[in-house]
Amino acid sequence: MTVFMKQFQVGTRVRCSLPYAGHGIVFAVHGVQVPESVRTIGGVGVSGGSARLDVVFLNGTISRQLSEALVRASVQWRVLDEVATAEEVQAAIEHANTAQAEREAIKREAAAQFAAEVERLKSAPEYSHLVQGEDTYSGVLAAKNIRAMLKLAFPAVKFSVRKKSFGSLVIEWLDGPTENDVQAVAGQFRAGHYCGQEEAYQHEKTPWCAVFGAAEYISVCRHHSGELIERAIAKLFNDLPGNFDGIERPSVEQYERGSLDIIRVPGLAYSLQQMIRQTLNGTHG
Results as ranks from 00 to 15, higher is better:
R13L: 02
R15K: 02
R15P: 00
H23Y: 11
V26L: 05
V26D: 00
A28K: 09
P35C: 08
P35W: 08
E36H: 11
E36Y: 07
V38T: 10
I41G: 00
S50C: 08
A51W: 09
R52S: 02
V55N: 01
V56Q: 01
V56W: 01
I62Q: 02
L66E: 10
L66M: 15
E68P: 03
E68V: 05
R72A: 02
S74R: 01
L80N: 03
V83T: 15
E88P: 01
A91S: 11
I93G: 00
E102T: 11
A111M: 11
A111H: 12
E117Q: 14
E119V: 09
Q132Y: 03
E134I: 11
D135P: 11
T136H: 08
T136R: 04
T136V: 12
T136W: 03
K144A: 12
R147W: 01
L150Q: 05
P155M: 06
K163G: 07
K164L: 13
I171N: 06
I171P: 02
E172W: 04
L174W: 09
P177C: 08
V182Y: 06
A184P: 05
A191W: 06
A191N: 09
G192M: 10
H193Y: 15
Y201C: 04
K205T: 14
G213M: 04
A214R: 04
A214K: 03
E216W: 05
E216A: 13
H224F: 15
G226H: 10
R231E: 07
A234E: 13
A234G: 03
L236N: 05
N238F: 05
P241Y: 03
N243F: 06
I247G: 00
P250C: 07
S251V: 14
E253M: 10
Q254C: 06
E256Q: 12
I262R: 06
G267S: 07
M275L: 12
L280Q: 09
H284F: 02
